[in-house]
Simulated assay, not measured.
Amino acid sequence: MPLPRTHQQAIARLQQMACLDLNGPLLIEPVLHELHRIIDFDTGGYFYPGADGGLDAYIEPSIARGCMHTYFDPQLMATEQQVIRRSAHDFAAAVRGDHGTQVMEELLKVPMAQFMRSDFYNLVLRPAELLDCLSLVLRTPQGQGVGALKLYRRPGAARFAPEDVAMLGRLEPWLARTLQLGEMDTEDSVLHDSAVLITTPGGQLLWTSPQADQLMALAFGPRWYRRTELPPALHTLLQRLQSAQRLIHGGPAPAVPQLELHNASGWFLLRATQMTAATGQGHAISLHITQRAPRVARLLPALRTLGLPQRQHELAYWLVRGLPEDQIAARMGISANTATYHRRQIYTRLGVQNRQELQDFFFVPQ
């Protein structure tokens, strides 16, 4: 039985994403968007090795995202080990032992009824309104772990069916290639947002804004939930600032200490500068945080809203990325005349005259 047209289009988009000039966790949002069109689930999550060697996580905007900090609570991590066979926390073990798409029962050490009485379920999953799960550990062709994809359904929803398991398994090669971390070009990015927060030299938070709070949550994930305490990496940054201040009297002013972070939400830069406290007593530290997003990550959602046919969608992507038209035709396996025809169709539809206007359409605020 042929797949519905919406499924075919979503699969084609996932296959296209696997061949883009950017890959890694930054593409998880468009990946999950297309998966929603193929498999019915309420919330998607992605767990992957962070730059600091620990586990990083992305959860779609939902009640579950607001509850995610509990998943990283040390006590609850211990209770999870009592009921889950291999959790995302132990990613290395999951890479060694978990193969193919797994349903909830395959992830559990205990029967489902016992699991639903556990502290882990009642303190983590129940508040997040999550129950059933499809889990897939993604690997490179060489067997290196890329990340663990989790699709959740809420309590009361139908359980994932064998066809859901089969479909996610079918998509595994393209998902792994898309989300595999590649080289990052921070020059090929756009400024998305910036904000400031104020702390004491010892790391106590004095002032923040909703905008800064949101950026810090994106940069540090659940580690930013206890907002009176800075993540360890920021304590290190403040210590570097204090050391730099002590060197000022002995020579030229040192560079402003900074911290770079890369995760599924973008590229973050934090700079620490010393300032006089508003009360006039003691000192305070200004932490300036900026978020940059790759042009590709910004381009894909913008292209998605246009509803272009698949061929035009793909050709528009490469036109915006600056690929010569003959190379686009070769990459897409079409003739130069066909590429020219589709380009003209795109220009007419968007009301642009040339490639520069096409790029401005997507990247210059209207």
Rank of each mutant, 00 (worst) to 15 (best):
H192C: 11
A113N: 15
L136D: 02
D90N: 14
P111F: 13
A92L: 11
F91A: 01
H99T: 13
D98N: 14
M116D: 05
K109P: 08
K109Q: 15
A157Y: 04
E105W: 13
Q142W: 07
S135C: 13
G147E: 01
V124C: 14
Y152R: 00
A176V: 00
R170K: 10
L181A: 13
G97W: 12
L168N: 02
G97H: 15
G143I: 03
R153G: 04
L136N: 01
Q180K: 06
L175E: 01
M112C: 11
S135R: 02
T186L: 14
D132T: 08
V110G: 12
A166Y: 06
T178Q: 03
M104S: 03
L168G: 00
S87I: 12
V110Q: 15
C133F: 02
D193W: 08
Y152V: 01
F115G: 00
M116I: 07
G169H: 08
F115M: 00
L138P: 00
L138I: 01
H89T: 05
L134M: 07
R96P: 05
R126N: 07
E106Q: 15
M184Y: 11
S194T: 06
L107T: 07
L151I: 03
L131G: 03
A93W: 08
L168S: 01
P111R: 14
P155W: 07
L191H: 10
R170Q: 09
R139L: 08
M112K: 15
G156T: 07
T140I: 08
P173G: 04
P111E: 15
R177Y: 02
A92H: 10
E172N: 09
L131K: 08
G147H: 03
M184V: 14
L181H: 13
H99V: 12
L108F: 11
M104C: 12
H89C: 07
R126G: 05
L149E: 01
H192N: 10
N122L: 14
L108K: 04
M104A: 03
A94F: 08
R117W: 14
P111T: 02
R117T: 15
H192T: 06
A128T: 04
